[in-house]
Write a protein that binds this DNA or RNA. Structure first.
Length: 425
RNA sequence: GCCGCCGUGGCUCAGCCCGGUAGAGCGGCUGGCUGUUAACCAGUCGGUCAAAGGUUCGAAUCCUUUCGGCGGCGCCA
């Protein structure tokens, strides 16, 4: 048994080979049948002559039927990929009914057929790149001595305002699905120090855009004894490592997907950094209504991102538009130590910041935002017992992939997308 | 939450503005042809035009409502 990629790489010219896979295309003539067989590694053309003992089985085959095919591999310029197999024996494993997905397909239909569309070349390639991005991210965290941890998905209190939380019945109690693992990572830094997790986050935002999912994978890191500069340095290091690794490793996937790999190779630390105030000043000429204190809209982010043409940071936001746990400057508390990483076309792919380590200030911030400190007793305990300055961030894996792979929509960055309207299969 | 667009055979669409009970391509099936590149040629099967109500002699077409889908903004990663 040999993988199709090995044959396409020239492993077995003029040798007898056996492949296992599915029928990707079939073209049938009177004297000759062409089969394109796919497995997880690629697609190869197989020819069946009328004189071959496999002729009868080949005739029966339908698109997406599974089979084992034995024959002789040979180099042939006429075959896509440069190699083909002259079939001698075909064993049908599962004869497929007429496959519903064909040449003509709409976005809507493809989404209804997600469970079958995942067999497409596009999804196959995207899923491989996704796996490699996850690998690369873990590599980087490990290389910097971070420990991977496993936070809960069921939670009893909100991280931020409760409006975007999914509630659920947990036996007789009301619980929520987590929208960030940050608070749990904050617990773990007191023993493991540098920690990270790669886990789902859930948001009940009724957003109707190409960059929102209700369930997405969140790459989050948290560590003590660090400041904003350490945070940005780590994030740009992570991003650089991921982009360089994928740029080296996934050239074939990018080529077949038609994605721009040069953009990844161009990603190198340090990234441009501008403060929120500088961002406002840059945007003022184009958007005169923009004033200090307003949050940057998606259009504003896009304008900045097009200017830079690569990942960059915006930091030091108004305290008012940031969450209660954001640390503020002691001499000008109207500014919070928060940082977003932005990329062209997508806008924010990551948010991070320094966390308030002073219990009294934190309590005041909670009250100011209408939160009850008694709901966050365990979080306040972290400040009671050996508090430390610390920082952390969360990056949206699928948004990262949309940018890296030039995807049209975030739903193609995850195998089973959940949006406001879709959760099947 | 606000706004816009879409819904016609299994799939992709035309027809809708200017009402007269549906048409093409792909797929399927049959036959032909071909070292083919999501081939080509001929034939054939296949549709209560999203649903309900209204206007009309007559509605896929005009009006109303509902359902489903997509996207933009807001919010966010």
């Amino acid at each position: 048994m040999v993988k199709i990629r090995e044959i396409l790489e020239g492993c077995c010219a003029d040798q007898k080979v056996t492949v296992r896979g599915w029928v990707y295309r079939k073209r049938e003539g009177k004297e000759l049948i062409f089969l394109l067989i796919r497995d997880s590694t690629g697609v190869i053309q197989c020819t069946i002559k009328k004189t071959s003992p496999s002729w009868n089985e080949a005739q029966k085959l339908t698109i997406e039927s599974s089979l084992t095919l034995e024959g002789t591999a040979k180099e042939d310029k006429r075959a896509p990929g440069g190699f083909e197999i002259g079939a001698e024996t075909i064993t049908i494993i599962g004869l497929a009914e007429t496959f519903p997905i064909s040449k003509d397909k709409s976005e809507e239909f493809i989404r209804d057929m997600r469970h079958l569309w995942l067999r497409s070349r596009k999804m196959n390639l995207v899923m491989k790149v996704r796996a490699d991005v996850l690998d690369a991210a873990r590599q980087y965290f490990k290389s910097q001595d971070y420990t991977e941890v496993s936070p809960p998905m069921f939670i009893s209190a909100a991280v931020e305002g409760g409006s975007t939380l999914f509630g659920l019945k947990y036996f007789d109690q009301d619980l929520y699905l987590t929208q960030s693992s940050q608070l749990y990572l904050e617990i773990l830094i007191y023993s493991l120090e540098n920690v990270y997790c790669i886990a789902p986050s859930f948001r009940a935002e009724k957003s109707r855009t190409i960059r929102h999912l209700t369930e997405y994978w969140h790459i989050e890191g948290e560590w003590p004894f660090a400041d904003m500069n350490d945070l940005m340095k780590f994030e740009e290091g992570l991003m650089t490592h991921v982009c360089q690794t994928i740029g080296d490793k996934c050239q074939k996937e990018f080529a077949e997907l038609g994605a721009d790999i040069a953009k990844l190779k161009a990603v190198k630390a340090p990234f441009p950094r501008i403060t929120y105030k500088e961002a406002i000043d840059r945007l003022k000429p184009k958007n005169p209504q923009l004033a200090w204190g307003a949050d940057l809209g998606y259009e504003d982010e896009k304008v900045l991102a097009e200017d830079f043409g690569k990942p960059f940071f915006v930091y030091d936001y108004p305290t008012e538009i940031k969450a209660f746990y954001c640390k503020t400057y002691s001499d000008h508390s109207e500014v919070a130590m928060s940082v977003d990483m932005m990329v062209p076309r997508i806008g924010e792919i990551s948010t991070g910041g320094a966390r308030e380590e002073n219990k009294d200030i934190l309590t005041e911030r909670m009250k100011a935002q209408g939160l009850k400190p008694e709901d966050y007793e365990w979080y306040l305990d972290l400040r009671r017992y050996g508090t430390v300055p610390h920082v952390g961030f969360g990056m949206g894996l699928e948004r990262l992939l949309v940018w890296m792979l030039d995807l049209d929509n975030i739903i193609d960055a995850i195998p089973f997308p959940r949006t406001t309207r879709r959760f099947y299969p």
